[in-house]
Nucleic acid binder design. Structure first.
Length: 518
RNA sequence: GGCCCCUUCGACUAGCGGUUAGGUCACUACCCUUUCAAGGUAGCGGCACGAGUUCGAAUCUCGUAGGGGUCACCA
């Protein structure tokens, strides 16, 4: 029997890292066994439904390279893949359950239910549906329904005993039936709840392995009851540990406490393969201990039995560090060039000298953790007019005479190769009898506009004579025009603006730009 | 609170009766060095606790504690 897995996100908000996480493992299991990976949209909550969320979820999977075999916009023989388009299935199943006595129509209004809960609380009982709808005779249920009275369909759950299932990772899990209320299967608007829809769809789509988040463990017995009532075989259940917030208690990951939006990570310059790799270390580990691995490598080694159950903290530092690893070690320099082009374009930079780009990347890539940072550092290589940050200005002012000397020296230098530039610079510093930094830092600032940059020799060689001369000239001009050292007001304003910008960058929320989409 | 699940360095994890408990990130120190990184070397740091089972427990059992999840006409 082929392995069939699915990811069933709900289009109610920003594409979530948890969806990517569960999707990854489901994808891996299906691929590992040459089976099918199905994408199904669980859009049965019309209150929270967001039309554009649907498209964004699909875009997320596309970006990550997690390609479903079946799904909305892809097709497949088990469609449609939007639950809102499958209402007849659920209604038919509900009718069957009613006919067989496994379910009943219940007519309590929301107000009645609320009053019931209030009363239960007053008496110190656990609040929950007490099954009062069972008391209405089937004929009366049918009559009132036929009269158009609003109602839901509820599952008739056993009162005694317990219901259990086997979780691939946890073994037998049993829940006392007293804990299981007569759950709503069909809402009064005719839409199914999760419980009914998931069982009907997983069965009709041939899903063999239900791999989902741990939060579903306690409601799995409801599904078991449904499978039994409908006479269907149970799938294998695998409940994945919940991703956790980096707070003291490690609560379930939430957008209130951290950034859970995949789009946001994309906008911050996280690579899809790095995100996937990172998620692949949440609860999972390679049998051989590799910590950097591709999607294909994960697929080749994937065995759900290796998943560990402690809730893994979604640690941004680790994600960024892994992303940095991809930038400097995993990606080829050419591939990196292709990745960063759209980002440069977004800043109005079109690269026509490929070699220049690659040379710059070569020295920059160990210094950046994200494509965003890389782009920031790349910009000074391409923009003709540099902006000097506050600290940079101070360095420039202190280096005026050196820059004047070096401008002349470079003008006289014919070959801008490593050895010659190095020799020139070292010779000059030696003759001046000053510490290296005294000379190098102003030059670095003149070339890049910032104090934190690659080695000066590298910069000069990569930029070449023309750019080097031009930048030194510009710097000298900026100095003579008056650097704001002597203007404390302006310094302060700039510092504040920089802090604000940094804060904004940290939040990292802005719409996806065209270039990032491409 | 009831029920269910979980528990190895700060974080991610390896381990599946016998290991000096290993690796990665983070952190610290040193080296390299014209800044910042990267890189190199070293270091810090852990089996929640208590009983049992066993010649021998991180590994098996039970209990305790702690943490999480769940108790909707949301998924």
């Amino acid at each position: 029997m082929p392995v069939v897995t699915r990811i069933a996100p709900s289009p109610t908000g920003d594409p979530h890292v948890g969806t990517a996480y569960v999707g990854l493992f489901n994808y891996a299991l299906a691929r590992r066994h040459g089976g099918r990976f199905v994408l199904r949209l669980e859009d049965t909550d019309r209150q929270r439904y967001q039309a554009e969320a649907e498209e964004r979820i699909l875009a997320m999977f596309d970006w990550l390279g997690l390609r479903p075999d079946e799904g909305p916009g892809i097709g497949g023989e088990h469609g449609p893949y939007r639950q809102s388009e499958r209402l007849a299935h659920y209604q038919a199943a509900a009718q069957r359950l009613i006919d067989d006595g496994h379910a009943y129509r219940a007519f309590e209004t929301p107000e009645e239910l609320e009053a019931m809960r209030l009363e239960q609380r007053r008496l110190g009982h656990d609040p929950g549906y007490d099954g009062r709808g069972r008391l209405v005779a089937p004929e009366e249920q049918a009559r009132r329904a036929a009269d158009g009275e609003p109602h839901v369909v509820r599952l008739r759950t056993p009162d005694a005993g317990d219901t259990g299932f086997t979780d691939l990772l946890r073994g037998e899990v049993r829940i006392p039936n007293a804990e299981i209320r007569d759950t709503v299967l069909l809402k009064s608007d005719g839409f199914p709840t999760y419980h009914l829809a998931v069982v009907v769809d997983d069965h009709s789509m041939g899903v063999t392995h239900v791999m989902r988040a741990e939060e579903w463990v306690t409601s799995t017995p409801i599904h078991v009851l449904l499978y039994r009532a409908l006479g269907w075989a149970l799938p294998t259940f695998v409940h994945l540990p919940l991703l956790r917030n980096p707070d003291a208690n490690k609560t379930k990951i939430s957008k209130r406490k951290m950034d859970t939006s995949v789009e946001s990570y994309r906008q911050q310059g996280i690579l899809p393969e790095a995100l996937l790799n990172f998620l692949g270390t949440m609860g999972w580990s390679m049998p051989d201990g590799r910590e950097v691995f591709s999607l294909d490598e994960l697929v080749a080694a994937f065995d759900p039995a290796r998943i560990s159950l402690g809730g893994p903290v979604f640690d941004l530092k680790r994600l960024r560090s892994l992303n940095a690893r991809y930038l400097r070690d995993v990606l080829s320099i050419e591939a990196l060039g292709e990745r960063v082009r759209p980002w440069l374009l977004e800043r109005g930079i079109t690269v026509d000298d490929e070699d220049y780009l690659l040379d710059a990347l070569d020295v920059l890539r160990p210094r950046a953790e994200t494509l965003l940072e890389l782009t920031d550092q790349l910009v000074p290589f391409f923009e003709s007019r540099l902006r000097y940050d506050v600290d940079a200005r101070r360095r420039l002012a202190a280096g005026q005479s050196y820059l004047e000397d070096l401008e002349r020296a470079f003008a006289a230098l014919e070959w801008f190769d490593d050895d010659d530039v190095d020799e020139l610079l070292r010779g000059y510093v030696q003759r001046q009898a000053v510490p290296m930094g005294k000379v190098m830092m102003p030059l670095r600032v003149a070339l890049t506009g910032t104090t934190q940059a690659p080695g000066v020799v590298d910069l000069v060689v990569i930029m070449g004579k023309e750019r080097t001369m031009e930048r030194i000239g510009q710097a000298l001009q900026a100095i003579s025009e008056g650097l704001p050292d002597d203007d404390p007001e302006r310094l302060k304003a700039e510092a504040e603006a920089a802090a604000k910008e940094a804060e904004r960058a940290k939040r990292g929320r802005r719409p996806l730009t065209a270039a990032e989409r491409g």
